[in-house]
Amino acid sequence: MTLRVGAHTSIAGGVHNAVEEQREYSGNCGQIFSHSPQVWQDPNIDDENATQFREKSTDNGIHPWVIHSSYLVNLCTPKDDLREKSIDSMQTEVDAADLLDIEYVNVHLGAHTGAGVEQGLDNAASALDALDIPDGVTVLVESDAGSGTKLGGDFEHLAAVLDRSEQDLDVCLDTAHAFAAGYDLSTATGVEETITEFDDVVGLEHLACVHLNDSKHECGTNKDEHAHIGEGRIGEAGMRAFVNHEAIRDVPLVLETPTENGKSFAWNIERVAELRA
């Protein structure tokens, strides 16, 4: 079983540069934004850059890739204008993934902002159903830290959207988000219980990707701030148990760890490799 671990890399200067950056970190899978995630903007990827990205990824054995959707997307929103913008933005993302031969597009469900949990989940499922998703591209619903009216903190939210949508969806589990939402991953027992619950509620067959991040905050605080692998509140014991769990061993691990204290993505990727038995 090959360890698939990589980082979120930049497309500055052209999307093909993300592959070169991934190589510098010794990653063999990865994630990108197709544009700035803080503005409503369409991807600006020309055919030449797309060809370079595809060829370099293949030549260097870097796969799979994930496109992370804009932070502005809110699938749960009851507001018609924001809903339409979110659907339009997601359509450009799945089309960009198709152009780049990227397998996954990752998205947070967003916040129901007072509409209620059930209505928010219905809104998310129907927004996803409005997409024309190309063959070979799968949308991943990401687990959330669960603050405020944001949905996706409970595994039941993820399962509900997968059940209510007509699309063939899968899930990206973020370890820092799950921990913040109350799933204790800091011990081998906690990891086993969390993965068992995920399987019971969502189904491990839907776990397509993991955002592997430690957490700067305690379990159940709903605070989303990532830490270096093994150096946060999940800690070394929890991370070791997680990356070595049989259900995780073939799942690609994408890091969104910070660059601070002299430690970068390269350090964190090496750390994951060390923890993997």
Results as ranks from 00 to 15, higher is better:
I102T: 10
D135S: 13
A176V: 03
A111S: 13
G120P: 04
H211D: 05
L99Q: 15
A208T: 09
S186R: 05
Q167I: 08
S143P: 09
V171G: 03
K150Q: 15
A145I: 06
T149L: 11
E118M: 03
E156C: 07
S165C: 09
D184Y: 00
L158K: 07
A181P: 08
N106C: 14
T113V: 11
I195T: 02
D168V: 13
L151P: 02
D98H: 13
A125T: 12
L100A: 11
C209L: 15
D174Q: 12
A188K: 13
E193I: 06
I195D: 03
G190Y: 05
L151C: 07
Q119K: 14
L169R: 00
V107C: 10
N106V: 07
T196R: 12
F179R: 01
D144P: 12
V171A: 11
D163I: 00
L109K: 01
E142W: 01
D200G: 01
L204N: 14
T194W: 01
D184W: 01
F155Q: 04
L99N: 05
G148S: 13
C172S: 12
T149P: 02
A176Y: 01
N106G: 01
G120L: 02
D135T: 13
L169G: 06
V202F: 10
G146L: 09
D144Y: 09
D144N: 15
D174H: 12
V191W: 08
E193D: 15
A125M: 10
H177A: 14
D122R: 12
D144E: 14
H177P: 04
E205P: 05
A96Y: 03
G136V: 07
L204Y: 09
G120C: 05
S165A: 12
D170Y: 02
T175C: 07
D129S: 13
L212G: 02
H211A: 09
L131Q: 09
H157D: 15
A178S: 15
H211R: 13
D154N: 14
S186T: 10
G136C: 05
L121G: 03
D144H: 14
Q167A: 12
L162G: 14
A96H: 07
S143H: 08
E197C: 10
V107Q: 00
L128D: 01
D184Q: 07
G182S: 09
A180P: 01
V202E: 05
L185A: 08
G182D: 07
L140C: 09
H108P: 08
F179W: 03
F179Y: 12
G146I: 03
V161Q: 04
S165R: 10
T149H: 09
V107S: 04
A180H: 03
L151T: 08
I133Y: 08
G148T: 14
L140T: 00
A159L: 10
Q119M: 11
L158R: 11
V201S: 02
G116F: 05
D129L: 13
T196M: 02
L151E: 06
E197A: 14
T138G: 03
E156G: 12
L121P: 00
I195R: 00
V171N: 03
N123D: 11
T194S: 09
